[in-house]
Amino acid sequence: MKDELHTGDEQDDVLKAVGQLPQSIEPQRDLWPDIASRLDALVPARRRGLQMGWTLALAAGLGCVALGALLAVGVMKGSGSSTTGNLTAQATSPATTALPAQTTAPASGDTAQVRQASLGGYAMLGPEYEQARAQLLIGLAERLDRLPPVERQKVERNLNEIRRALGELNAALQLAPNDTLLRELLLNTYHDELTLLANVNQIADTIPSRSQS
């Protein structure tokens, strides 16, 4: 207690002594190379930890996207077209579900490059999502012919627009893996892609057919 009671002169002395301390103390040797090498050794482990964090943090979001995907496919199935039944059979075949890292799915006459759904390179969306997306893409490929040619091009152009956005988001997320805004935008954009596929499929399904007569 006594130590805490200083007179004004004593405080001045202390302040004077503090003022005389050096602003910085140089280490006797350069410590940075050692620190850098230890950091390098730590990075893979930190990334693994980050990936686990992602998995947990994104579980709800991924679940929502996967659920949305399944619902979208469910809606298509519910539309009751015989084509849809065939699509399901095709899409659940191992050849379709086992998407490689970079899959080519048909989208009209051209082939559109469809990358596996990545989250900034640190995680991937689950197989349910990929399967739902594959089904919707196959459905789109079959239904696009029902649309007028100009509209087909517009659909493809806009799908590419979404994929360009996904590319930008993934690239940004690799640079800033902890940015929650980017993660949210990315998940929502994957959701947008599914919604677009489902909507176009659904609209194409309702196009009046030619008379059977």
Binding site: P149, P208, S209, S211, Q212, S213
Partner: peptide, 12 residues
């Protein structure tokens, strides 16, 4: 109310 097209009818 549904418009049914002839089989031979194409876009436009």
């Amino acid at each position: 109310i549904k418009v049914l097209l002839k089989k031979s009818t194409h876009w436009g």
